[in-house]
Design a binder for these strands. Structure first.
Length: 276
DNA sequence: AATGCGATCAACCGCCGAGAC
DNA sequence: TGTCTCGGCGGTTGATCGCAT
């Protein structure tokens, strides 16, 4: 029970992979491609199930993986995307070239979630990067940028004229005013919406200063979900055509913006925190 | 040096949806 | 239409590491 059919056909090894097993898998996939994963173990001479081979390749052996610690940009991006997508780790990982859903998930659970649980807010990014903040900003907290007495961040005006941003905000405002959708952050029980979620709800922020590989970005389609705390869900279908690491095109109006133009007040300040 | 404990992360588990038949 | 296989995903586990005592 619980094992795939491919795992039941033969006795399979479990647990950590040996260097020899890694070598066999790499050699096979680089030569023939993975094809049908369920047939990979047999063809590669491995006593593993296909699922295990797939996982090992995707999470560890793939040549395009970026190893090592998450950068500030990546962490901020994860936080931002998580506020939009929730625990859709695979979707979040797609915005982080070289990172896997497993990595993102582990990073969230180990470095971010626990701090949120212990503090109840992400009011200070130094919780996540205690050693890397500088002193340029004397008070590097999100509340410093979004005063607590300001409009809730979900309904804050934004500085870009991007149609998609305006669309999302318009819909959110309408729902808010109509009282038919309570747009709390995805994890409202953990997070003060004036702080954590305030990095931005702007889906274009995924483009922020990030060197997306062209192959990941061509004809990119994003389905942005803004989840409420009820059974209501606002869905905004947005199609973005990324052109390169610095520009992207909103397919609705063909707005070409440099990343500088995309920086909303919120994300500018966030980055100020991280890199000043 | 030995031990305990929390953090990290690779790997597994269980479920789901798509596609083939 | 129902069943089966497979790939993919999120949740969870457990081994290992590093630090504190």
């Amino acid at each position: 029970m619980g094992h795939h059919t491919c795992c039941n056909k033969q006795k399979v090894k479990r647990g950590l992979w040996s260097p020899e097993e890694d070598e066999k898998l790499i050699k096979y996939i680089t030569t023939y491609g993975h094809g049908c994963w369920s047939s990979v173990p047999k063809l590669a001479g491995l006593q593993r199930c296909g699922k295990s081979c797939r996982l090992r390749w995707i999470n560890y052996l793939r040549p395009d993986l970026k190893r090592g610690s998450f950068s500030h940009q990546e962490a901020a991006l994860i936080i931002e995307l998580h506020s939009i997508l929730g625990n859709r780790w695979a979707q979040i990982a797609k915005h982080l070239p070289g990172r896997t859903d497993n990595e993102v998930k582990n990073f969230w659970n180990s470095s971010i979630k626990k701090k949120l649980l212990s503090h109840g807010t992400l009011s200070d990014f130094s919780m996540i990067f205690p050693n890397n903040l500088t002193t340029t900003n004397p008070n590097p907290s999100f509340e410093n940028f979004y005063p607590l007495n300001s409009t809730p961040i979900n309904f804050m005006p934004i500085s870009t004229n991007s149609p998609l941003i305006l669309q999302v905000d318009h819909q959110m405002n309408n729902n808010h005013l109509n009282g038919d959708l309570n747009l709390n952050p995805v994890v409202p029980s953990l997070i003060n919406p004036l702080s954590f979620d305030s990095i931005t709800n702007d889906p274009t922020w995924v483009n922020f200063n990030y060197p997306h590989p062209q192959h990941d970005l061509d004809n990119y389609n994003q389905n942005v979900l803004i989840q409420g705390n009820s059974d209501s869900m606002l869905t905004s279908n947005i199609s973005l055509n990324y052109t390169n690491g610095e520009n992207f095109m909103d397919s609705r109006n063909a707005d070409i913006k440099t990343h500088q133009d995309l920086l909303m007040v919120r994300s500018v300040n966030c980055v100020t925190i991280l890199f000043n």
